[in-house]
Amino acid sequence: MGHEMGLMTPASPKHRLAWWQWAAFPVLAAVVALTYLWVGPATYFSSPGAARIIFFHVPVAMLLAYWYLVAGVCSLRYLLSREQRWDVKAAAAAEVGLVCTILATISGAVFARVQWNSWWNWDPKQVAIVIILMIYAAYFALRGAVEDLDLRARVSAVYALLAGVAVPVIIKVLPQLPGTGTLHPSGTLQSGGMSADYRVVFWLALVGFLWVTSWLYRLRARLGALEG
């Protein structure tokens, strides 16, 4: 319990960062430095210099899906085991996922303004992200509206699973609507559509963001465990 006391009194000299926490700083610093000093302007972009936003936007958008999935899996594990710690983890993952979703929405809107000349144009991925934001809003509203800890854990896990099933259907159904073609490229990563410099920085950025969000998640889960 010693390190948890340290968390409650931040001034305590006992609470130091672990090596892997320190190591996140040089990785992210390298991402920023390489983005601006090494990677060249990209072709096929209406503003080649602004293509660098993909090192931020794409990893955050991928992590949004990852943390959404983690929250769903933790919810399922809660229902199967009925152990409170899985509820705490589900809520922590959902909060980190919400942060990623907001960042992806904002960076996406900026990117869309540069590339497509419009902040918002109801591209299928923009539709999907709005729906995911609404699900998070409903999820946290529900958590706030139930007092009893056990009941809150149960109903929010049930809701997370229901919404988790609905999302793939929504993403499948929406593009079938008339007049909703996507402007997002697809298959760029798999088909090697990025040059070597872009690929290196992209993967470094993905690892770095995964690192930092996992750290956030750990902190949030520990705080949640102390609250409960």
Binding site: A138, L162, L174
Partner: peptide, 25 residues
Amino acid sequence: IVARAESRASLFAALAFPIVLPVLV
């Protein structure tokens, strides 16, 4: 779910939105 929560009326529509969206589309 909302029967067991507070602020039921507003919560119900918010919870329903993502679930009913495929139906409505």
